[in-house]
């Protein structure tokens, strides 16, 4: 456990000093800060525009941070041969993978905290009211990015960083649309049972990132939600289970890898 935490701490320290991640964070913070200036372009929809733009920026920044940070995490250690130094100590390979993942999640938490604080301040200034429901959206985005980070880490155990960029980017896009496709197909009476079955299996196997996109009712607050607490708890449980699944997969592949 100590070894895992030590690796996580080192990963976190390294990640928050990475210039590219800091640039993404700074750009996101700046855009969130200036988002209230969009108000004149939105007419009566100013609240919608400010909230949706802020959420969009945070989600996009979170996605970029997760992919860029985790793509190179393990390959760089192998390339620089620092992994041999680490593994020559009493550190198991699974501890290394876990430490890297927890370090990435810690970095993500830090980034989301920064963006969240700025977003709350910006919305308070623009809308004239504190909107605590924004925090719910940010928490869900954090789990979405963490799940993406786990997927990127999983791919990084067996593909090169360049391939990983496309693979994880594609997975994120497909994972964001799967539920919608399933829903549309289910509502269409002309869908064949085979097509339904295929999309259902795909949806059940692939990570479903759209479950974490809960910003719409926050942007349109007059909606009455059914069981929002149960939904949040189950979705977070889903994220944790899927992250565990990807980490176990990463460990299996990393353990088999010749170094």
């Amino acid at each position: 456990m100590n070894a895992t935490l030590a690796i996580a701490g080192a990963t976190f320290g390294e990640a928050v000093r990475k210039r590219i991640l800091l640039v993404i964070l700074l750009v996101a913070l700046l855009i969130i800060l200036i988002s209230p200036m969009l108000e004149p372009f939105a007419g009566r929809g100013a609240t919608t525009m400010i909230l949706s733009f802020g959420f969009g920026v945070i989600q996009l920044a979170g996605t970029f941070i997760a992919i860029i940070m985790c793509t190179s995490m393990i390959p760089v250690e192998i390339e620089r041969r620092t992994i041999y130094t680490i593994l020559s100590k009493p550190v198991q390979r699974y501890q290394f993978v876990l430490g890297k993942f927890f370090g990435a999640v810690g970095t993500m938490a830090f980034m989301y905290l920064m963006m969240g604080i700025v977003f709350l301040i910006a919305t308070r200034l623009a809308l004239g009211e504190f909107r605590p429901d924004i925090i719910h959206g940010l928490i869900m985005f954090f789990f979405q990015s963490s799940l993406l980070a786990a997927a990127v880490l999983f791919f990084s155990t067996f593909v090169s960083p360049l391939v990983n960029y496309f693979l994880s980017g594609g997975l994120y896009l497909v994972g964001n649309l799967l539920s919608s496709f399933l829903e549309t197909l289910q509502r269409n009476p002309e869908t064949t049972p085979i097509a339904q079955m295929v999309i259902q299996i795909l949806t059940a196997v692939m990570p479903n990132f759209s479950l974490f996109n809960v910003q719409n009712p926050i942007i349109n607050p007059e909606q009455v939600l059914v069981d929002p607490l149960a939904y949040t708890v189950q979705t977070i449980a889903y994220a944790i289970v899927y992250m565990a699944l990807l980490l176990v997969g990463s460990m299996l592949i990393f353990n088999q890898r010749e170094m």
Partner: peptide, 23 residues
């Protein structure tokens, strides 16, 4: 386990958060 949770969550997602149409 994740497939089971997802199948449980999906109807609530459709009800509360789905964009309704993907075309």
């Amino acid at each position: 386990v994740q497939a089971v949770i997802q199948m449980r969550v999906h109807p609530l997602w459709v009800r509360n958060y789905a964009p309704k149409q993907v075309t």
